[in-house]
Amino acid sequence: MIPTIPQPRALRIVYGTYIALFFLYLALPLTVVAVFAFNDSQFPSLPWEGFTWNWFFGDSRPMIGVFHERPIIRAVGTSAFVAGIVGLLSVAVGTSNAFLFNRYNFRGKGLLYVLMLLPLVIPGIVLGISILVFSSTVANGMWDIAKMDIQALRPGLLLVILGQFSFIATIATLVISARLQKFDRSLEEAALNLGASRLTAVRTITIPFLMPAMIGALVVAFLMSFENFNTTLMLVGSDAPLTIAMFDRLKEGSTPLLNAVSLLLMLGSSLLALSLILFQRRK
C-alpha cells in the first residue's frame, strides 16, 4: 500500500494504469474545448478544417473572434465587477467573523457558528430563490406603503452580488479562521506591553499575519463568484455575467467562439490558481 511495503508487480501496473486513466479522464474535456477553439469551421466538432486564430481575433462574419464580440466582452466586465465586489465583501466580513469566533465567548456562539456553516449545505438554487422571493417581498412592501419602486431589489446585479456573497462569505470565514487559530496571542500581548493600543496591535501584528489567508480567500472568492451559475441564474437581470451569457449561447447552438472564450477562461483561472498555490507555498 505504501512504498515501504512491496506489492506484486502486476498490482502495481494495474494501479498505475488506473491513475493514468483517471488523469486522462480529468484532462479530456478541457483538452477538446481548447483544441477546437482553433478549428477553422462553424462547429466545434470534427472534421478538423485546419488551424485558425479567427475565433480570437477575427473581425468579420461569420467568424467574429472573442476580442471583437461586444456582448462577450461586456459580460466579462460584468463578471469581473461582481466578483471583485463579492471578493472584497466576503474577505471583510470573513475577517470580522474570524475575530468574533476566535476572540469572544458569548451565549449563542455555537448556534451562530452552525448558522454560519449552513450556506454550504443549502443548494445554490434554493439560496437564489429565497433571496429573490424575500427581496421582492420587501420591494412590494415598499411600493404598498410608500409608493416607492426600488429597482435595486428587482433581479439584477445587486441581487446577484448578495446571492453569491451569502455563501462565499462562509468560505472566506473558514479560510481566515483557520489561519487566525494558528496565531500566537503572546505576540499581540507583547505589542500591548510595549505600549501599543489594542487596535494598533491588531493592525500591525495580527492583520499582517492573516494577510496570506486574506489574499487566498480573496482569490478563491473571486474565482467562485466568477464561475457561479446556480445562484446567479435565479437572480440575474438584464446584465448577464459571463457564465449566464455563455449558457444562453450554448442553448442556441455552439460555435468555436465559445471554445475560444473557454480557453481564455481556463488560462486566466489556472494562472490565478497557480500563482495562489505558489504564493502560499513560499510563505
Binding site: 480529468l26 479530456l28 474535456p29 478541457l30 464561475e227 455552439s254 473557454s262
Partner: peptide
C-alpha cells in the same frame, strides 16, 4: 480543472 467554470467542463463533455 476545477478552477475552470463548470460551464466549460460541461461544454467539453458535450463536444
Amino acid at each position: 480543472p476545477f478552477y475552470v467554470s463548470e460551464l466549460v467542463r460541461t461544454f467539453g463533455w458535450m463536444i
